[in-house]
Structure formats: structure tokens, C-alpha cells
């Protein structure tokens, strides 16, 4: 399945609300899929494209907050706009801490809803792109030999080849060879780029 545009997933146990929201979101130009419960949504195949969740907080069975937790634990990147019958402070705080884009109170203001959906879709795209970058860097890191990884970790801290050689107990020339291999494998054109990549991949090691 190759969706053409962003998909908004509506999850609400109330049939009228679910149907009407799906219509509105669709009329605003999004693809829409609607679900009556968290379980139904989770039963759907994993979705990795652009989109967002329009999620009711309180539902029989698993709540919207439960779904947020489940998605986070599974490292699935799909931003959430919560909707609720009555904004209670505790669940809105929980939702926002959990990374929700917005927490809207029913009945829904059209502008606020569509703005929130736009932001959520954007965030999903950003997060997915970010995740793509991190994955790429991690894949590169995975190709390094243990010695190259050691050298990489020390290079990005700004140490000179000489210092690195002394610390690792190898010759300066050997360090130089490893360093060139690291630059190549990490596809970095400069030391600055390599340092940035190290940050993306979560690789900055503390100086021993």
C-alpha cells in the first residue's frame, strides 16, 4: 500500500463522533482511517508513512493514554492529537509529557483541530526523517572495526593523532590509517561533519 498523502487515524468509541470527525478530516484533504477502539487500531498493519492519530482519551478497554504508551514502547513514530469530552488536567499533562501534539476538548474547533493535525503530521514526518538519519549513521557505525570505533570515539573529542596513539598504545601512523578508514566508512568529508554524525548516532563518548 502506497498512500498518496498523509493519513489521519481517528480512534473514538462513539460512532457518531468517529464518523463525523472522519468526514471533516477527509473534507480537509487527508486520507482517513477510523477505528472504534485502541485494539482495532493496533490490529492494523504497521504504518510507517506520514500521518497522525486523532485519539479519544477515554474509551472502554484501553484508553488513548494506553495507546500512546504502547506506541512509545514500540518506538513507533506517529504523532498524536488527543481529543476529550472534558479536559481534566491530569490526563492532559500525561498526554503532553508523553509527546502529544495537542489536547483538544470536544466539541472541536475546526481551525484548532486542523492546525493540530497539520503540526502532528509535520512532526511525524520530521521524526521519521530524523529516525532515518539516525538509522543510517548507526548502520555506518556498525561497519567499523573495534579499533576504528575506538579511534572514532577519540577523534570526535578533538584529540590529536599523537595523543590518540599514546592513549591506545599504538603508533601515530596507525592512528592515521584508522582515521582515514573511519572518515571513509562514515562517509564524512570533514572532521566537523564526523563530529556531527557522532552526535546523531549518540556516539560522543566521555573523555576517559
Amino acid at each position: 500500500m502506497a498512500p498518496t498523502g498523509p493519513v489521519v487515524f481517528v480512534v473514538d468509541d462513539d460512532a457518531s463522533v468517529r464518523k463525523s470527525l472522519a468526514r471533516l478530516v477527509k473534507a480537509a484533504g487527508y486520507e482517513v482511517e477510523a477505528f472504534a477502539s485502541v485494539g482495532d487500531f493496533l490490529a492494523r498493519a504497521h504504518f510507517e508513512g506520514p500521518g497522525c492519530l486523532l485519539l479519544d482519551v477515554r474509551m472502554p478497554g484501553q484508553t488513548g493514554l494506553d495507546l500512546q504508551e504502547t506506541l512509545r514502547a514500540a518506538e513507533r513514530r506517529l504523532s498524536i492529537v488527543f481529543i476529550t469530552g472534558h479536559g481534566d488536567v491530569r490526563s492532559s499533562v500525561t498526554a503532553m509529557k508523553g509527546g502529544a501534539v495537542d489536547f483538544l476538548t470536544k466539541p472541536l474547533d475546526e481551525e484548532a483541530l486542523l492546525t493540530a493535525i497539520r503540526q502532528a503530521v509535520r512532526r511525524t514526518i520530521d521524526e521519521q526523517a530524523e529516525h532515518g538519519r539516525v538509522t543510517a549513521v548507526r548502520n555506518c557505525v556498525a561497519t567499523l572495526t573495534p579499533r576504528e570505533a575506538e579511534v572514532f570515539a577519540l577523534v570526535v573529542t578533538g584529540m590529536l593523532n599523537k595523543q590518540i596513539g599514546a592513549q591506545l598504545g599504538i603508533g601515530e601512523k596507525t592512528v592515521k590509517v584508522h582515521r582515514a578508514r573511519v572518515m571513509e566508512k562514515m562517509q564524512a568529508g570533514s572532521l566537523a561533519q564526523l563530529v556531527r554524525l557522532a552526535g546523531t548516532g549518540g556516539m560522543i563518548a566521555a573523555r576517559a
Binding site: 462513539d14 463522533v17 470536544k106 472541536l108
Partner: peptide, 11 residues
């Protein structure tokens, strides 16, 4: 009351 009102507005 909120449920039908929400649906009416969204519709």
C-alpha cells in the same frame, strides 16, 4: 451531551 454536540459540529 458532548458526544452528539461534537458530532453535530464536525458534521
Amino acid at each position: 451531551l458532548n458526544q452528539p454536540l461534537t458530532a453535530i459540529l464536525a458534521n
